[in-house]
Amino acid sequence: MKILVCISNVPDTTTKITFTSNNTEFNTAGVQYILNPYDEIALSRAIELCEGGKGTVTVINVGEASTEPTIRKALAIGADDAVRINAAPRDAYFVAYQIAEYAKEQGFDMILAGRESIDHNGAQVPAMIAEFLDIPSISVIKKLDFDGSTATINREIEGGKEVVEVSAPFVASCAEGVAEWKIPNMRGIMSARTKPLQVIEAKNIDQLSAVEVYETPAPRSAVKMVDAADMTGLVNLLHTEAKVI
């Protein structure tokens, strides 16, 4: 079994988001980068499925050399090898195309990714890869089992879940529930340094979208405190002032 896991290098979840150059660029000053938490769930499940010599896990990232610490983290968690497409990601279409171009000749049984990256939140790349490769995709999955040829997957839907079956190859985007986060052990960290990391140059494709400008949410007005004994007062405020009930 061969599994490809797409990983993204994103600002740590505790980052206060600010922008520079007239709000056209993300301010990277002092920002810690991490492996996108959802991608990490996908990676954990891929490693579990391949445990005991049942297969290999390759991680792929589209990014410049600065993303290599995050790629090494994925190798430390347990991926067997890594690929970095050497380019600054322009948009989801660009990233998905690069990954699809790499994957198309490799015979992966499945391509996994997180449900979305926590920076752009596009949730676009996994399904785009599937479309480029003309294979099925299942988005926002909560559970994944694989018998070597067919996967049984729980997918989230509004107000419930759906259980689906799909034959390999396919693409799935993973959410919480698919696996627990794994903490790399010392052996993993040591071996990550020597695991293969292949660097490939990006292919040309049109850019279809671009961020013009960023903004941060407008600050809220000062909090109005309500006495804990006066819940009727709160309900009145919600009705007459906030007009939400």
């Binding site: 988001i17 922008f19 279809l208 979208s209 961020v211 013009e212």
Partner: peptide, 13 residues
């Protein structure tokens, strides 16, 4: 964008 910490104005060409 940024999981609700910001908004992005995205142009489509």
């Amino acid at each position: 964008a940024y999981s609700g910490k910001a908004f992005a104005q995205v142009s489509l060409s």
